[in-house]
Design a protein around this nucleic acid. Sequence first.
DNA 1: CCCTGATTCGC
DNA 2: GCGAATCAGG
Length: 220
Amino acid sequence: MSWNDERIETLKTMWEAGQTASQIAEALGGVSRNAVIGKAHRLGLQSRPSPVRPNEPEAKVEVVEPVVVSPVVELAPEPEEIDELEEAESESSPAPAAAEPAARPAEPQQILRSVGPGGFVRQSPGEQQPPATPAPPRRLVPAKPSAEMAGKTSLLDLNDRICKWPLGHPGEPDFHFCGVKVNPGFPYCVEHCGHAYQAQMPRRDRRPPPPLPFGGPRVR
DNA sequence: CCCTGATTCGC
DNA sequence: GCGAATCAGG
């Protein structure tokens, strides 16, 4: 297996989306987790929260500015801090059910879940809840809220400020990116952050084969 | 044990 | 450049 453009593209996208190296390797097929990690590093992709931290002396940063982005979107925390949230959460706090305190920016969880072909978010059996905001059966619209449907956002159009959420499959004629202004600090717009950062399923429940927000690599 | 990502180093 | 082996934390 070699790293052609398409596979690299998939790697980049998934890596940035927070998928684990294992997931990426599995999705790509023909490569090991190590291969993915190695490649990611060679590509200069920035490392994500690693279990093994070189422990870098860091000047303290306190930009605790509660930015109001959207009532619907729960922001993901900085990678640095998501570590201990798991345990603290699994213990208490059952299910907020209906009367949820609107938001708890204090302990969000950053992770991913699969997104179905239509863009709907799959739920694992244990966590099925009615959507906080009654979502219409198909609220997904081509994610092209703004201006042009005609001018697709190509790979070349990508920059720090526009949403890199891929639409369609890499290599396909109409493959393009969302292109909407990003949710500051994230690679995606507010809407797609909502898709990209969600509660992680227990690893046990991970379905290896099916989903991939990116359409996954096509098998040849 | 399982998982994770990081690093090394022979190829 | 590649990735298995190894390391090391959770």
